[in-house]
Amino acid sequence: MKDIRRRISAFGRRSGGQAAIMLSPAVLILLVFFLLPLGFILFYSFLTRGDYGAILYDLSLKNYRQLLDPIYFPTFIRSFGIMLVTTGVSLIFAYPLAYWLAFYAGRMRGLLLFLIVVPSWTSELVRIYAWMFLLRDGGLVNAQLMNLGLIDEAIRMLFTPSAVIIGMVYSYFSFMLLPLYASLDRLDRSVLEAAADLGANPLRRLIKVTLPLTKGGILSGTVLVAVPAVGDYIVPDLLGGARVNMIGNLIEDKFLGFFDWPFGSAISLVLAAMVVASVLIYIRIAGKGAIERLI
């Protein structure tokens, strides 16, 4: 009896030690590459800018107070607006595609999914540069529209808000598509058959059965697109012509243009806090297991 108890406790100890060893790389990575930099940013956000990019160790809350200046409101509102439109457009385009892939693509689906994901293996900067060439007045898009006789004069697309939306939707499309596809693929087909047997027409089946059952995928995709979209700065810079700032551009300006690391850090933290708050709301709505579904 004693022997067994000892063996059990020994097992318990060993598995505890093993768990620590197994987890240590992950913990280390989180610590070094996530928590430590975040700690630096938090610390910097209370400091003051000195001359020639120096940082003065005068602790204060003035960087946060400065953010209450109404001059920054349009930037924040614009960022969230562009994020909402990007997420909405991505959802509208990705849902039918994911549906088709899950229900009708058959043996092709593996290849098609692969093709959708492949471009994201290239750097975002390079792909956005490519869009500059596509969207410009003499670019491929305008040339084709003119060839088809749809327009007589080039449409000005580059350096407009529409170009920013196009670039963002393009950048984050697969983050929307993949969770949608996963949830549609898991959808129990017999439920749809039952609905049909009970006399529901296709539209009713979509609204009453398919959409509610794939709510998890929709929410996951929304979070995965919205979070990076709100902080993006490459797309508004290159495709929007830097005429108006998003939060990411404001942060970039403060760090690299004006060498104001303390204020830049404060803006970054406020943005991060807003994102975390949104994700918490998401978890509230999506319920248990929401985090797992995100991954």
Binding site: D137, G138, F159, L238, A242
Partner: peptide, 21 residues
């Protein structure tokens, strides 16, 4: 001047100029 400005852009404007845009 801002409403007349197509973009605030540094290096990449070279391509737009070469294309005459």
């Amino acid at each position: 001047q801002k409403p007349w400005i197509r973009a605030y852009i540094s290096g990449p404007v070279r391509e737009q100029m070469i294309a005459g845009e």
